[in-house]
């Protein structure tokens, strides 16, 4: 175990308008290391493997428990969370890159605000009348709660979008996360009131129709959210709406 080390290389970029470049690092191995703790080591000793002084790595992170969705990046080519990527399970040298389908801010930081815009577009909320006292919430059976809870664990990490071959600048596809959230709120006894609006939004350009059912989303999702199931369910709902709109309006 002595002198064992961890080798990794990072695709870095100083600013949105500059060219990316690679830097290689080596840190001492310890059991239980994850990708984020590698970055922490670099911050304490910002020197490349070749001995060249460099800058600490810029990356988004917060909870480090895989619930906040911050530290998503490409690790050995795959979209995943840096905090739950254990060095012991990764092939070395570990390659670490920023997401490829979101604008790079700096190093591993990217702009994922498109997801929050999408959540606005599908009105992903329960439109309550107000926060004043209005008594108990609706009764919900445990089975329904369990379904909702699965979907409600989406932490907006955008792994599903990064891994999706259809999520790109030419399609402007909304991505699985937003569709699953639309399903979540359509399922809620009160949230349902906006169901038709949500479905209509998802029938706009970049909507659910752009899904190619490669099913990468559900494989990439760190929280095992039933994303393809959601796409199919909402897919049925939009078809029903389309047909009813055609015959009944």
């Amino acid at each position: 175990m002595a002198n064992k080390s961890v080798l990794f290389k990072i695709k870095r970029q100083a600013s949105p308008s500059t060219e990316p470049f690679w830097e290689e690092f080596e840190v001492e191995y310890r059991p239980g290391l994850n990708v984020i703790s590698l970055f922490m080591e670099v911050a304490v000793n910002p020197v490349t493997r070749a001995g060249k002084p460099t800058t600490p790595i810029n990356y988004d992170s917060n909870c480090l428990e895989e619930v906040c969705g911050s530290c998503a990046m490409l690790i050995n080519g795959k979209a995943r969370m840096g905090c739950s990527a254990l060095v012991d399970n990764l092939e070395q040298p570990i390659t670490i890159e920023p997401f490829s389908k979101f604008p790079v801010i700096r190093d591993l930081q990217v702009d994922r605000s498109v997801l929050f815009e999408n959540l606005k577009a599908v009105k992903a909320w329960v439109p309550i009348d107000g926060t004043y006292a209005l008594g108990d919430g609706p009764r919900i059976l445990p089975q329904v709660q369990e379904q909702a809870y699965q979907l409600s664990q989406c932490m907006s990490c955008c792994c599903c979008m990064e891994a999706c071959p259809q999520f790109n600048e030419s399609t402007g596809f909304v991505g699985a996360a937003t569709i699953a959230q639309a399903r979540l709120f359509n399922m809620h006894p009160t949230g349902k009131v906006l169901k038709q609006e949500r479905l209509a939004a998802l029938m706009g350009d970049g909507g659910i129709q752009e899904c190619g059912y490669a099913q990468n989303c559900v494989e990439a999702c760190p929280k095992d959210i039933p994303l393809t199931r959601s796409i199919s369910d909402v897919g049925g709902d939009v078809m029903k709406k389309a047909i009813l709109d055609f015959f009944r309006t």
Binding site: P16, S17, K101, F102, P103, V104, I105, D111, V114, E117, N118, A121, V122, M161, F167, N168, E169, G172, F173, V174, T178, A200, A201, L202, M203, G204, D205, G206, G207, I208, Q209, E210, V238, M239, A242
Partner: peptide
């Protein structure tokens, strides 16, 4: 203004791509 654009957000209620794709 200084950031590149990236993938566009959903264009709710815009376009006919749903019809064509289906």
């Amino acid at each position: 203004s200084t950031l590149p654009k990236g993938v566009a957000p959903l264009r709710a209620g815009v376009g006919n791509s749903f019809l064509w794709r289906r």
